[in-house]
């Protein structure tokens, strides 16, 4: 059973304490939401978990500590993340992006190619097939395959960024504002995809501003304000929490 446990997470940039006291757990098949005003430290939390910034506190994945693991090794533990902006390779086509997301499993090493150069065609076919499947899994229309990410609708771009991070599979998916700027129908598709990921047993941690989406899909929510975690509970508990209303929900639409 996948369990991502974060305890007393603290991130400081010099004298500024961006995050302190973050504690939450997310199990496979659960969606945890992290909400809070802008600049409250949400992305820093993700950066800390994936090892991009120095942190204090503990992060364990299914009992195993992730301390000292370099960021590029995180995906081997099944820990994947999306980025708020610029979360694909803008110079490549959507299909090629998906191919890149498949990683080493579908890409031959140089020594292997030197031994057998003529296997290129077959390998490429297999990889492209799998990439097309990946796009389909994430509701990205196949005709977008030959376009570049900045040429497809914005809502689909967000889906692509999730597809890119999910790749060949994830145990934990940290999604950084996937619904930013998304509306209506696209939001529906996004909700369905998050649901599907939950169904696949992925532990999803979701940073979001869209309260409707958060309340709709999340099993539990952690609220962060000015770097500190001020609440942690089910959507109902959060909505009733006076501290949360004062800090966030009260003045927010």
């Amino acid at each position: 059973m996948t369990i991502l446990e974060v305890r007393d997470l603290e991130v400081s940039y010099g004298a500024l304490k961006a995050v302190s006291g973050m504690t939450f757990t997310c199990r496979g098949g659960e969606i945890l939401g992290i909400i809070g005003p802008n600049g409250a430290g949400k992305s820093s939390t993700f950066n800390a978990i994936t090892g991009r910034v120095e942190k204090k506190g503990t992060v364990t994945l299914s009992g195993q500590s992730l301390d000292g693991v370099p960021t590029c090794e995180m995906q081997r533990f099944g820990l994947k993340r999306t980025f708020q902006q610029n979360s694909f390779f803008t110079e490549l086509t959507v299909l090629r992006n998906a191919e890149m997301a498949l990683g080493r499993a579908y890409c031959p090493s140089l020594p292997a190619l030197l031994r057998n150069p003529f296997s290129i065609g077959r390998r490429a076919r297999v990889r492209i097939e799998r990439a097309r499947e990946l796009l389909a899994e994430f509701h990205i229309p196949p005709e977008y395959g030959s376009l570049r990410p900045d040429e497809i609708p914005y809502g689909t771009q967000r889906l692509l960024s999730i597809a890119m991070s999910y790749g060949t599979g994830a145990k934990v998916l940290l999604a950084d504002e996937p619904a930013a700027g998304v509306g209506g129908e696209d939001m529906e598709v996004l909700a369905r995809i998050l649901d599907k990921l939950r169904g696949l047993g992925v532990a999803v941690v979701l940073i979001e501003h869209h309260m409707d989406l958060v309340m709709q899909v999340c099993d539990r929510i952690a609220v962060i304000d000015r770097g500190t975690q001020i609440a942690y509970g089910t959507p109902d508990e959060i909505q009733r929490d006076p501290k949360v209303r004062a800090a966030y929900l009260g003045g927010e639409a």
Binding site: R81, F83, T90
Partner: peptide, 9 residues
């Protein structure tokens, strides 16, 4: 995209 590349391993 170095950041994305890193998170992809």
């Amino acid at each position: 995209n170095p950041d994305l590349a890193e998170s992809l391993g």
